[in-house]
Amino acid sequence: MEDPRFNSFRYGLAVLLMRHPHLRPYAHSAHWWIEDIENYADAVRFRDKLRAEGDNKMLLEEYEQICIELEEEVLSYFGASALDPP
């Protein structure tokens, strides 16, 4: 059973902002894409679990790609101006 205190949205946003710190000033707008950020968080958590277990290389590769695609999708929501570092 998943920890009831875990919040996929907050985790996903935190991962995204750690990987792309130039988006931090735009974090307040992330609430528009809650479901997408939650999906990203779930994929990242599962990918990291697969990495730790190291058993299923093919599934890990698939989730690596899923994470990249979801991250790119979420990044696109922030708009081109937010993606260009100052």
Rank of each mutant, 00 (worst) to 15 (best):
M1F: 11
D3V: 06
P4N: 14
P4A: 15
P4I: 12
R5H: 08
R5P: 00
R5K: 13
N7D: 15
N7M: 07
S8D: 08
F9M: 09
R10W: 06
R10E: 15
R10L: 15
R10Y: 08
Y11A: 15
Y11Q: 07
Y11E: 07
Y11K: 06
Y11I: 03
G12F: 02
G12E: 04
G12N: 01
A14Y: 02
V15C: 15
V15S: 10
V15K: 05
L16T: 02
L17P: 14
L17G: 14
M18K: 15
M18L: 12
M18N: 14
M18H: 11
R19F: 01
R19S: 04
P21A: 05
H22W: 09
H22R: 05
L23A: 11
L23G: 12
Y26L: 08
A27I: 06
A27M: 13
H28S: 13
S29H: 13
A30Y: 03
A30W: 03
A30I: 07
A30M: 11
W32P: 01
W32N: 05
W32K: 13
W32A: 13
W32R: 14
W33R: 05
I34E: 11
D36S: 14
D36A: 15
D36E: 14
I37Q: 01
E38V: 09
E38A: 12
N39S: 13
N39P: 05
N39Q: 11
Y40R: 09
A41C: 09
A41F: 00
D42Y: 02
A43V: 08
V44S: 03
V44G: 03
R45W: 00
R45E: 05
F46L: 14
D48C: 12
L50E: 03
L50V: 00
R51V: 13
R51C: 13
A52K: 10
G54H: 06
G54F: 01
D55M: 07
D55Q: 11
N56V: 07
N56H: 08
K57H: 10
L59A: 07
L60S: 00
L60W: 01
E61R: 11
E61Q: 10
E61D: 10
E61H: 03
E62T: 02
E62R: 12
E62G: 02
Y63C: 01
Y63V: 02
Y63E: 01
Y63S: 00
E64W: 00
Q65P: 01
I66W: 02
C67I: 02
I68Q: 08
I68D: 02
E69G: 10
E69Y: 08
E69C: 12
L70S: 02
E71D: 10
E71Y: 05
E72F: 04
E73Q: 13
E73D: 11
V74A: 07
V74T: 01
V74F: 06
L75I: 04
L75H: 06
L75C: 06
S76I: 03
S76W: 11
S76L: 07
S76Q: 10
Y77V: 00
F78K: 07
G79W: 12
G79F: 10
G79L: 10
A80D: 12
A80R: 14
S81N: 09
A82G: 11
L83A: 05
D84T: 12
P85V: 02
P85G: 05
P85Q: 08
P86R: 05
P86K: 05
